[in-house]
Structures are given as C-alpha cells and as structure tokens.
Design a binder for these strands. Sequence first.
DNA 1: CTCCGTAACTTGACACTGTCAAGATACCGT
DNA 2: ACGGTATCTTGACAGTGTCAAGTTACGGAG
Lengths: 211, 211
Amino acid sequence: MTDSKTTPRNTTTRRRDGTLRSCLVEAGITILQKKGTDGLSLRECAALAGVSHAAPGYHFKNLTGLYTAISARGYELFAAAMEARRNEARDSAPKARLLATCEGYLDFAAEHRELFLFMFSGQEIDSGNTHFEAASTRAYEILRETCAPFVHADADPEEIELLVWSLIHGYTHLAMVNKKRQGSISTALPMLPDLLKHLDLNTQNKDPNQA
Amino acid sequence: MTDSKTTPRNTTTRRRDGTLRSCLVEAGITILQKKGTDGLSLRECAALAGVSHAAPGYHFKNLTGLYTAISARGYELFAAAMEARRNEARDSAPKARLLATCEGYLDFAAEHRELFLFMFSGQEIDSGNTHFEAASTRAYEILRETCAPFVHADADPEEIELLVWSLIHGYTHLAMVNKKRQGSISTALPMLPDLLKHLDLNTQNKDPNQA
DNA sequence: CTCCGTAACTTGACACTGTCAAGATACCGT
DNA sequence: ACGGTATCTTGACAGTGTCAAGTTACGGAG
C-alpha cells in the first residue's frame, strides 16, 4: 500500500523474477478480505497491482488460474496458523496439541474469513497445479500428525482424521457462514474444548493418558 | 421472440400469480446444478424461463434477491430430504433416528451438490427475508428435534446440536468440496455410522465416561 | 360496456467483467 | 551491437448486473 490508488511503478520496467505474480496473488487476497468473493476479479487485481487489465491473464491463464494461486497461498497461511498454535503447545499431551491445532484452524478462518470461505466454496481450480497440491497436502499433513497418537494399532488412520477434520471444519465453517459479524470468533474459540470432549479419543495402549 | 428453445409461453400473457417468480427460482436451481455457481446469472434464468433479460430484476430486486430466493427453496428441499429419511425410521431408537437425519443431510448434498455448496458459500443474502428465514429455521428445527433426546436435563441444548451439526456438516461439506466426482456419496454414506459412534451421546443419565 | 390505473413485464443503455489477438519494450545471451 | 524472447500493454468483443423509460394487458370503477 504505497501510494494513492495503485502501486506507481515505472511503467518501463519489466520483471523477470515473478514479482508481479505474487503481487497479484497478494492483491487478490486483499480484495477478497475487503470486498468479498464478488469483488474479486482479474481486472481489480491488476488495478491494485498497478498494471494493465490483461496482465493477470499472462501469469494465470484465466480466472481459474488466479483462483488456484490464491487458494494455494491460502493453504500456506492455513498451515502456518495451525503450526503456530501447535508449536505453542509443543510439549503438551496429545489432546492439548489437538486442541491447539483446532484453535489454529479457527484462527485462520477468523482472520481470513473470505479467503477461508473461498477456499472451501467448491470453486473450480486447476487440481493438477503442483504448488496448490503441495500447499494443501502440507496443511492436511499437520492434521494427520496431530491425530496420529489417537489411531490404534490396527485401525485405519483415515477414520480418526476424518472424524476430527469433519468436526473442526464443520464447526468453523458454520461459524463463518452463519454470522456476518466477525465477533463470532470470540465465542467460538472458548467453546472448542467443550466440543472436543465429546469425542472418544484415547491414545493407544502405550500411554493411557487421561484428559 | 419467445419461440426460443426453452419455455415458449404466449408473449401476450402476464401473470398475476407469481408463477414467473417460482419459475425463475426453479430455472436458477437447474442452472446451478448443470453449470455450477459461475453459470448462474439473472440473464440466464430469464432466458431459461423464456422472458426478457431484465424480468428477474422486477421480481428479485438484484442478484442478492435471486440468491436469497434460491437459498430459501434450497432449505425447503433440504428439510424435505432429512424428513424423508427420518420418517423411514419413525419408531426407531433416538440414535437410529439421528443417523437417519444425517443420511438425509448427505442425501440432499449429494443430489444437489452445487445448490448445497451455494447455500453454504457465505454469499450475501437478504437476511431479513421472511421466506428464507422460515425455511432455514425449519431445517434447523429438524436437527434440533433429533438431538433433543440426547440433551441432559440441566444442559444447554445448543452444545449437543452444535456438536452433531458441526460433525455432519463438516463431513458432508468436505465430501462435496474435495471430490469433483459425485460418486463420493457411495462411500460417504456407508461410513456415517462409523463416524457417529465416536460421539458420546447418551439418552438420559449423565455419564462423563464414554459409553 | 368503456376506460383507466397499475402490475408485470420489455427495450435500451451503461459500466463492468473475462478472454483473446496483436502490438510494444526491455533485458539477456551471443 | 543485435536479435530473441519474456513480460507486459492496447484494443476489441461478448456477456453480466442494474437502472430508466417504455409497453401491454388485466381488474375494477363508472
């Protein structure tokens, strides 16, 4: 956010380092947060980045390309938010770490409501895109690691993962959809422990850890 | 003029009964299902209903109005799907009725994937609209009734409702978002009982330990 | 039966959007 | 110094939401 309406860069300089690409993604996220999904467009991203209206079409082939790049960036922020919370509880019990990860889940959604909704809106994206694939896989890995202590020896990890993921995602998503007011996070976060306690999660035979 | 391929109605008849309004909503749902949210527009609805491009603007003031009407209709279908499943298990135990209701939840999403995603996309709607309010409240009531047997005497009903709703919504929503292939329902439905069994739902006595 | 008010549209216009084709330009290697 | 190419810009077109103004036909008043 340098100058008045746009970023007044020398019209004569072309960048060979992919700066504009990430600038456009960042602009897209800004627009998303400020004006919602409806306000997001290739031309607005271009305007906010201070380039011509067709410039985004060069880096991302089309709208789907921009959406894919924004989602990929979203998953990076998503993973970072969960890791930040989890690292705070690094040496705690598995259940405390699970709670922390879920709090990170909520953190991200609350801080980037429109981006979160956009990522899970079912919008068409280039599912083959490697950057997107890596970022989303990484986010899922965090969940998987946090669930691992609760998976019994002969059980399928996916069942526990799906259970936890469904609960935290549903809880978060409903909170973001149902309340226009961002303040919902202030009530949603403290209620998390009360929700999770209803799950019958036990660490495997090794440590019959309580609570 | 109106001899277009769609609904060839007499150009000379104007309807005073609100037929066109519901026709436009139905057209919108059809477009949603066929071409996704991106393909949904006021002008396409008008074309599919065989009227001029600005006709929808008269009944729904703007896009938000159309979205609200479509969502309201969606909640009617939503409630109907849950009731259909629950009525099949009318005389069963509370847990069986809960499972049935959740199956109805999945039924609706699988049968109207794009509509379901649209309803929970966070799109701006006229939240004051009475029709929408009634329809969405009705759908929530079904969930509430199904959860009632599991609410202890001195407990807040919302906690159990939020628990169940979050789980089934998250499970369904993730299934719809993550898989483009509609076939996901064939695997999602049979896994429902395995998910629900992880919840510590008891009908009467307070028992902090798992069942 | 006529006539008129108004509900239910239609027509036309404007600003905005995505997307493509073609042009311009500055940096790089040679 | 020079040509090639990556990186944009300019221009155009079809499609969109939305508003203003026009048109028509039905219901009721007389």
